[in-house]
Design a protein around this nucleic acid. Structure first.
Length: 469
RNA sequence: GGCGGCGUAGCCAAGUGGUAAGGCAGGGGUCUGCAAAACCCCCAUUCGGCGGUUCGAAUCCGCCCGCCGCCUCCA
């Protein structure tokens, strides 16, 4: 079965057929590094991680580009306020961004180009647009894209340009634009601002030109997939299309994917509402990274995800079930031959899992396929029908699952063995052998207080950190 | 005002015409020294409301109610 994805531009599900067979080239709009990423940002980055992992699992050689916007109005403002250069200021948040990706097990893209590192490419693109007659300059020296010069403008967002004037939101612009919807390709430097030289005066690039220039530089004028959050559809991605296609005369991205937003307790996340969370906020509250990853991946990317702490607890519990199963598989007793029926069941599970993901990354359905299989496999183990000989068949499913979800291996924090814990476990086991149940139960209670759950198995006691610890 | 999305059990959520997946939580059992884990059974005659189309609708149409978002800061 082929991978089908929902294309925002065509408003329909399309079969993924890359430009070059076997290769998937994708551009993913990255962060503006002026603050810590919040969990809404991270949801989008996890969606993109899911996408690239599914592409990889299907055998594609993935080239992913994620830009880092390290110059814009806000950055200039904040850097100035903190008395730093732009580079000094943004490097802190760039580093934090990569730390967050690592924590959430996001696979690295092949390229993370920065805006400031690609000024030349942007200047070149602006020159191309200028030569083709799509631009004009205002008195201050800024260069604008003339929307009227690109007939396809609005095709992605289907925005009603005629109605926009009634929208009450169009500001009387500080610039002298021909049309309020025209957007900046190059902003002339204001006194005291950091600026770059170009053939048309000192200044800095507009936000939109960055993605057009860098995607072309790394992926070519036409590439397979472009992604971002829904808020980027208009104006950002609309403008990218206009600039890129006006300059090259060729189609830009072939498929557009957009992740819906995350909301918190049913409301838009906002600092003023006190419902604004970064990854660090959640970690400080003791939540595990893999539970956060699971939660943010468990809802379909085109559906709003309502983040709640109850949901995070549920995610942790779900992972616990899977992790307990992984351990059972590892501890299967020796056996001579694999059970054919179990192998067949596992094969079906893997197919169902992959089909669900092929269906526009339907993660909920994919999870259901895995959980149903876990139940069946657990039953086989309970009934003594499974042995170590079945491990390859079972592990094949787990590996396929975890190649995409990546939530089965414990976070480092879960594996640490605190001082004295093993001694308590040994002590309890000794008491049990002497059938001193009161003492054994008291020791188990103490371990529980330390966040350790002890389970007695035929092969002896084992422990794990309780989900909340 | 224009455009778009959503509303399925206590919570999360799949399901786009054929008679409600899965997870969490909860209740009852089996197993266990007791637990935990696991398994079994139960947990929506019903899918925001009201009409309509149809042999048949959560799924299609209409109206209404509620929620979220976009309309040049924003994942």
């Amino acid at each position: 079965m082929a991978l089908a994805l929902y294309d925002t531009l065509r408003r329909e599900r399309v079969t993924f057929e890359p430009l070059e067979p076997g290769c998937a080239r994708m551009y993913t709009c990255g962060p503006t590094v002026h603050d810590f990423a919040h969990i809404g940002n991270l949801r989008t980055f996890l969606f993109e991680d899911l996408l690239r992992r599914v592409l990889e699992a299907r055998g594609y050689d993935v080239t992913q580009v994620m830009n880092l916007t390290d110059v814009d109005d806000k950055i200039i403002q904040k850097a100035r306020a903190s008395g730093e250069t732009i580079a000094e200021f943004t490097s802190r948040y760039t580093q934090a961004f990569f730390e967050d990706l690592t924590t959430l097990r996001v696979e690295r893209a092949e390229h993370y180009p920065t805006a400031t590192g690609h000024i030349d490419a942007m200047v070149d693109l602006v020159k191309r647009l200028e030569a083709a007659g799509h631009t004009y300059r205002t008195d201050d020296g800024s260069i604008w894209f003339r929307i009227a010069s690109f007939p396809g403008y609005g095709k992605l967002s289907r925005i009603d340009l005629s109605g926009m004037r009634d929208g009450a939101r169009v500001e009387s612009d500080e610039y002298d634009k021909e049309d309020p919807k025209d957007f900046a390709l190059w902003k002339a430097a204001k006194p005291g601002e950091e600026a770059w030289d170009s053939g048309f005066g000192r200044g800095r690039p507009g936000w939109h030109i960055e993605c057009s220039a860098m995607s072309m530089a790394y992926l070519g004028e036409t590439f397979d997939i472009h992604t971002g959050g829904v808020d980027n559809i208009f104006p950002h991605h609309e403008n990218e299309i206009a600039q890129s296609e006006a300059a090259t005369g060729r189609p830009f991205a072939r498929i557009w994917l957009h992740a819906e937003h995350l909301i918190v307790d049913g409301q838009k996340m906002a600092k003023s509402l006190g419902n604004f969370f970064t990854l660090r906020d959640l970690l400080e509250r003791g939540y595990r990274p893999r539970a956060i990853r699971y939660l943010l991946l468990s809802v379909h990317y085109r559906q709003q995800l309502n983040f709640t702490f109850a949901g995070l607890d549920q995610a942790a519990a779900s992972i616990e079930r899977l992790s307990d199963f992984v351990r059972r598989v590892e501890e299967l007793p020796p056996g001579a031959a694999p059970v054919e029926e179990l192998a067949a069941r596992s094969h079906r599970a893997r197919e169902a899992f992959e089909e669900a993901l092929d269906d526009d990354l339907n993660t909920s359905r994919a999870l259901a396929a895995v959980f149903e299989w876990v139940r069946d496999a657990n039953r086989a183990i309970d009934e003594g029908r499974a042995s170590a000989a079945d491990r390859p068949a079972l592990e094949a499913v787990l590996e396929a699952f975890d190649a995409v979800y990546d939530v089965l291996t414990p976070d480092a924090e879960e594996l640490r063995l605190d001082e004295g814990i093993q001694a308590l476990i040994d002590e309890r086991e000794a008491a049990r052998r002497e059938r001193d149940w009161n003492r054994a139960d008291a020791l188990r209670g103490r371990l529980e207080e330390l966040g350790i759950v002890v389970e007695d198995t035929p092969a002896g006691p084992r422990w794990k950190r309780s989900p909340g610890a």
